[in-house]
Amino acid sequence: MSFIPESEIQDSEILYRAIHPSFWNYEEDRPTSALFKDRKGVSVDRDGDRSEDDAVNFLLNSRQNFGAGNLNAGQTRNIGTYLKPDKTPENDFHALILESESKVQLSNSKAKKLSRVVTIINPPFNEEVQSTYANASLWEKTK
């Protein structure tokens, strides 16, 4: 069955989210809730019947040092978000996670919940930040 970009997002679908290096908490080794705070809604790619590798390669194609994570659509919906297919000329798989049908930006509570349920496929990479936080973490451990 071929993927229809405008089709309603099913609960069983997987949504892929690119993670900018600044959205990573290097001390805690997890993403921040800021990853899900966006004026334009949270941009994700639907799996569209692709393998995880294909979906992640496509997602990170022009995003150097970004990481990738995925969310289950049903779980995302259960948090109280609205999932909207949003095909663009460059990306048939594009979709948005919104606060509701009429409100774009997610509440702080929903953003935090998403940051704790997202499954990390690849963490982002930032050599400078990583070494700084590695030192800070080492420093913390000497307490």
Binding site: F23, A34, K37, D38, R39, Q105, K112
Partner: peptide
Amino acid sequence: NVFPTGRQSIQFEYEKSNENYLE
């Protein structure tokens, strides 16, 4: 811990080991 957001704000985050959280 400091992070940028995609909504023109800068987020300061605090979390304790008991999971109490403040941003």
